[in-house]
């Protein structure tokens, strides 16, 4: 039983670290902002959840487990929201810049 718990917790930790690493590679390799956002936003939530589950399995102390579960719930709420806020802000910014460009070109065409 003990060995089983140890192996499964290490498995969870390993998967979590792998996901973290792949997200980090994604943020460096993907071409534009939205794909990078996607790479980090998707992997980060799952990676944190995996690492926390691994730690919960690893730790026998009940109080620490409860705190870890609370942290897990918080991350599940917060990190997708943060990703959404970032992407939303980027989209609004993009739109505003496009509008500016359009206005500029209109002004140019009207003057010429």
């Amino acid at each position: 039983m003990d060995a089983f718990i140890h192996i499964s917790s290490s498995l969870f930790l390993l998967i979590g670290s792998f996901l973290c690493l792949s997200g980090g590679i994604g943020i460096l390799r993907f071409p534009d902002f939205y794909t990078r956002m996607h790479a980090v936003g998707v992997t980060e939530t799952l990676a944190t959840a995996m690492i926390l589950i691994g730690l919960i399995l690893y730790n026998p102390d009940f109080l620490v487990d409860v705190k870890l579960v609370i942290i897990l719930l918080m991350t599940l709420f917060i990190s997708p929201t943060a990703g959404h806020a970032l992407a939303n802000a980027a989209m609004l910014n993009d739109k505003m810049q496009k509008d500016d460009n359009k206005q500029n070109s209109e002004v140019k065409s009207s003057t010429s």
Partner: peptide, 13 residues
Amino acid sequence: LILRIVTKIMIPF
């Protein structure tokens, strides 16, 4: 909308 709802849930905690 999403930010507001999530923060409304989080603020008491």
